[in-house]
C-alpha cells in the first residue's frame, strides 16, 4: 500500500487496490484454510463437486463444516437449518457493521446484496480499516476488489486442496489449519488501534475459549455480545471524557 490514507484516483482504481491488498496478505491465509477444509471434507465423504459447491454457496468455512458433518450423519433438514443458522449468525453483525460504511450516500441495492454474498472475514477486515479513509463512491469498489478476488482464490484452493488432501503430510495439514486463525489475530493486532477495538479483541480472546467450556453452541455468540458490549461501554466512556475535557 503506497499511502494508507490517500484515496484512489477512481472507483476502478479502488477495486484494484482492494484486490492488491488482499493478494498481498490474506490470499495465502484463505488458500491455506480452504485447503484445510478439504481434509475434513474428504474425511466426511464429500465429492470434489460437493466440496467446491459448499465453498461457492457459503463462502464460510464454519457453515461448510457443520453442513458437511450433519449431512454425513443423516440429520434431518430442520436440524441442519437450525445448526447452520446458529453457526452463521456471526455473519449478521459483520454485515451490519460494514454495509453502512459501504453504502453511505448511495441508493442502489442489488450490488450491495451481491456484496453481502461474497462477504468474508478477509474482505471485512480490510474494508473496515480502509473504507473510512475513502470517498463514498470508492468504498464498494475497494471492498469488491478484495471480496471477489477472495471468492476466486477460495474456489481454486478448494478444488486444488481436494486433490492434495490425501497426499498431504498430517503436519502440513495441521499447519494449514493453523494459518487462518493466526493470520487474523496478527492482522487485528496490527490494524485495530483504537481503545474500544482493542478491548473487544482482548475480552473476546479470553472469553472465547472460556465460554466454549460452558456451552459449545452458544459460546461464540455470547463471546461477541459480552466482549462487544464491554468494548462499547469503554467507547462511550471515552466519548464522555472527550466531551468533558475537549
Amino acid at each position: 500500500m503506497p499511502d494508507a490514507q490517500r484515496p484512489y484516483a477512481s472507483p476502478n482504481a479502488a477495486w484494484r487496490g482492494g484486490a492488491r491488498d488482499y493478494l498481498g496478505g490474506a490470499a495465502l491465509a484463505m488458500g491455506a484454510s480452504f485447503m484445510g477444509f478439504d481434509a475434513a471434507a474428504r474425511d466426511i465423504g464429500l465429492s470434489l463437486a460437493q466440496s467446491v459447491a459448499t465453498t461457492a454457496g457459503m463462502v464460510f468455512v464454519p457453515s461448510q463444516m457443520v453442513m458437511a458433518d450433519l449431512a454425513r450423519s443423516g440429520a434431518g433438514i430442520v436440524t441442519l437449518i437450525v445448526a447452520v443458522a446458529l453457526v452463521s449468525l456471526r455473519l449478521f453483525p459483520m454485515s451490519l457493521a460494514l454495509m453502512p460504511l459501504l453504502r453511505e450516500g448511495r441508493t442502489e441495492r442489488l450490488r450491495f446484496y451481491a456484496g453481502g454474498y461474497v462477504l468474508a472475514t478477509t474482505a471485512w477486515a480490510y474494508a473496515m480499516k480502509r473504507c473510512p479513509t475513502l470517498p463514498t463512491d470508492q468504498r464498494l469498489g475497494y471492498f469488491s476488489g478484495a471480496a471477489i478476488t477472495n471468492y476466486v482464490v477460495i474456489l481454486f484452493s478448494t478444488a486444488i486442496g481436494y486433490q492434495l488432501a490425501d497426499a498431504m503430510h498430517p503436519a502440513v495439514t495441521a499447519g494449514l489449519v493453523l494459518f487462518a486463525p493466526l493470520f487474523f489475530l496478527l492482522l487485528f493486532i496490527a490494524d485495530v488501534v483504537d481503545r474500544a477495538g482493542r478491548v473487544a479483541l482482548a475480552t473476546g480472546a479470553v472469553l472465547g475459549p472460556l465460554l466454549f467450556l460452558v456451552d459449545r453452541e452458544w459460546s461464540i455468540v455470547a463471546t461477541g455480545l459480552i466482549g462487544g458490549t464491554i468494548a462499547f461501554a469503554v467507547h462511550r466512556a471515552g466519548e464522555r471524557r472527550g466531551a468533558r475535557d475537549g
Binding site: 456471526r90 453483525p93 459483520m94 457493521a97 472475514t121 471485512w124 487474523f184 489475530l185 487485528f188 485495530v192 474500544a196 477495538g197 473487544a200 479483541l201 482482548a202 475480552t203 473476546g204 480472546a205 472469553l207 472465547g208 475459549p209 465460554l211 459460546s219 461464540i220 455468540v221 463471546t223 461477541g224 455480545l225 459480552i226 466482549g227 462487544g228 458490549t229 468494548a231 462499547f232 467507547h235
Partner: peptide, 9 residues
Amino acid sequence: LVTYAMLAG
C-alpha cells in the same frame, strides 16, 4: 465491536 470480540474469541 461485537464482531471483533467474536472473531478474536
